[in-house]
Amino acid sequence: MRGDDLERYSRQIMLEELGEAGQERLGRAAVLVVGCGALGSAQLGLLCRAGVGRLRFIDPDRVELGNLHRQLLYDERDVAAGRPKAEAAAAHLAAVNSGVVLEPLVERAGPGNIAGLLAGMDLVLDASDDLRLRYLLNDACVRAGLPWLYGGVDGAGGMLLAVEPGRGPCLRCLWPDPPAPAGPPPVFPPAPVLVGAQQAALALRRLATGEPLPGRLLLLDAWQASWRALQVERDPHCRCCGARRFDFLPGGKVPDAGDG
């Protein structure tokens, strides 16, 4: 490891769980972050600062005034310039840690590009605001055998689940079908920051140790200041990770419920 890296990461290398070997593994790791909103801002900021070697991130939207209360990567200059979030994120992240390879993509993740997005990645972080996209991520990651971390927020509440394909439960073991789509939920700004930070923490742990993450649904109430863990189980009859029917990928048959 280079001398300035030893200095930059000295306080995290001091962690027994990480050490210099763990830090080197982080430096060789590649992560896809799907969405550059509030969850994505928190995740990207932390992963970039912690020295994850390669970050690929995708979002089709531009920075808007209504994003600034919770999306920590952006400021009023990004709004005034109408910058795409992925580009603005890349500019801010490059200033934080020039040693990280950044791959910003100003496009929408979907069935048509998901295979290419996953190529070469070690782990996927969900930071989207679209439940259907999460079912697509679940299908794509289970098929590819890639660990991914679901995260979502609603009001002051939030939740996350680490999916370890073939080991623990997947998204469809818990919720076999997506609910009908709804409009954007209210958001208490600390909720996505906390969820995104916890997703980033588990991603760093997974990448640094190589050890699979436990299949627990973590439930946050940012208003009441509580986290709790619900032990969830794999469904051997799950359509996705059991029967390996990938309904949300191209050629798959998407269930009627929650069409949108």
Partner: peptide, 8 residues
């Protein structure tokens, strides 16, 4: 009863 949270 827990619904999947979809905000991000």
């Amino acid at each position: 009863i827990v619904y999947p949270a979809f905000g991000g």
